[in-house]
Design a protein around this nucleic acid. Structure first.
Lengths: 191, 191
DNA sequence: ATCGCCAGAGAACGACCGTTCTCAGGTCCG
DNA sequence: CGGACCTGAGAACGGTCGTTCTCTGGCGAT
C-alpha cells in the first residue's frame, strides 16, 4: 500500500502527458509510458483500462492545468478587459516553455478525433469551456457575445502559429489584436 | 503504358489525402491507400519511396489546392481589403464541405511534427507562404505588417475552431474580426 | 518453518504496421 | 511459335503495437 492507485495515476498521467506532447499519441507505446512512469504494466492497466482511456485522462488533466494557468494569470488583473488580455499573457509564457509543442487538445483532435469519439468529445468539452470563460468576461464588459468568439479565434490561432512557426510572439500579436477588437466592440454598443 | 507514373501519383495522392483527412495519418495503413487508389503496392512504392514521402507529397498537393482556392475566392474582389476578406469567405465554403475535418497541415504537425522533420518542414513552409500572401495584401493596403500576422491568427483559429466545434460560422466571425482589425489599422497610419 | 498470497518483471499473443519478395500469368519481340 | 521480360496480386518479413498471462520471489500469518 506504499504506492496507492491515486499515486500511480498521477505518475502515469505526468509521464504520458510529457511523452504524448513530445511525440504525439500513436508514436508512444504503452511500454514507453510504463518505463517513463516507473510503474509496472499491471498497475498501469489497473489505473487506466485502455490507452484510449489514458489519453482522455491526460486531456482531462490538461484541462485542469489550463484553467489554473488562466486563473493565475488573471489574478492580478483588475478589470474584465485586463482579465481578457491576461489570457494572451498566459499563452505567451506557455509558448516560451521548452517543451511547448502546441495545444494538446488541437493535436489530439487532429490525430485521433476521426477515430476516437471519446477523444473528440474531450477536446470539444475543453474548447467549449474556454469559450464560456471568455463569454463570461465579455458579458461583464458589456460587449456583444460575438466578441468572445473572435477573441477565442485569436487564442486558438496563436497556439497553432506559435507551435508550427516556433514563434512565441504570436501571443503578443494576439493580445494586440484582442485589445483592438475589445475597443471596437465597446465603441459601438450594439451594432 | 496505359497507366503512367504521373497518373498513379495522382490517384494515390487523392486517395491518401481523403483517408488521412478522415482518420489521421498513422491510423491509415499503406495497404488501405493502395486499396483506395486501386493501384498495386509495387506501383505505389515506385511513385513514393516511403510513407513519409507520401505524407509530404499529400501536404504539397494540399498547398496547391489551398492556393488555388484562395486565388479563386479573391478573383472577384476589387480591392486589397476585399481580397483579404475573401480569404475568410473561402474558409467558410471549405468548412461547409462534408469531409472537412480541420487543416491538414495543423493536423499533420500535431501528429507527426515531433517525429518527422520532413513533415514539420512542409507544414512550416505552407504556413509561411500563407503569411507572405497576407503580408503582400496588407502592404498593398498600406497598413502596418503586424496586421498580416493578426489576420493569419484569425484564419488559423477559425480552422481549428470550425473543425473541433463543427461550426462553419467560425469563418464569418473571423471575417468580421478581420474587418474590424483592418479598419483600425488604417485609422492609425503608423502607430 | 511452511504455506498461501500477492506484486513485479517481462514473456507471450494476436494483430497490424511499412516494406520487400515471390511467383504465376500475360505480352511483346524475334 | 518460343522465350525473355514485365506486371499484378498477395505472401512474407521483421518489427511494434495494445493487452494479457505466466512465473518467480518475497512477505505475512499460523
Amino acid at each position: 500500500m506504499a504506492s496507492d492507485v491515486a499515486a500511480d495515476r498521477t505518475r502515469v498521467l505526468e509521464a504520458a502527458d510529457r511523452l504524448f506532447n513530445a511525440r504525439g499519441v500513436q508514436a508512444v507505446g504503452m511500454d514507453a509510458v510504463r518505463a517513463a512512469a516507473g510503474v509496472p504494466l499491471k498497475r498501469l492497466y489497473a489505473a487506466f483500462p485502455s490507452k484510449d482511456a489514458l489519453v482522455v485522462a491526460v486531456l482531462h488533466r490538461r484541462s485542469g492545468t489550463w484553467d489554473a494557468g488562466i486563473a493565475a494569470a488573471s489574478a492580478t488583473a483588475a478589470s474584465p478587459r485586463e482579465r481578457l488580455l491576461a489570457v494572451y499573457d498566459f499563452l505567451g509564457e506557455w509558448f516560451r516553455s521548452d517543451d511547448f509543442r502546441g495545444c494538446a487538445f488541437i493535436n489530439a483532435f487532429g490525430e485521433l478525433g476521426g477515430v476516437s469519439p471519446a477523444v473528440a468529445d474531450a477536446v470539444r468539452v475543453q474548447k467549449e469551456s474556454f469559450q464560456r470563460y471568455l463569454a463570461g468576461l465579455v458579458a461583464e464588459l458589456g460587449a456583444p457575445p460575438a466578441l468572445a468568439t473572435q477573441l477565442a479565434l485569436l487564442a486558438e490561432g496563436a497556439q497553432t502559429t506559435a507551435a508550427i512557426g516556433g514563434s512565441p510572439e504570436a501571443a503578443a500579436h494576439a493580445r494586440a489584436a484582442a485589445g483592438t477588437l475589445i475597443d471596437a466592440a465597446l465603441a459601438v454598443p450594439t451594432a
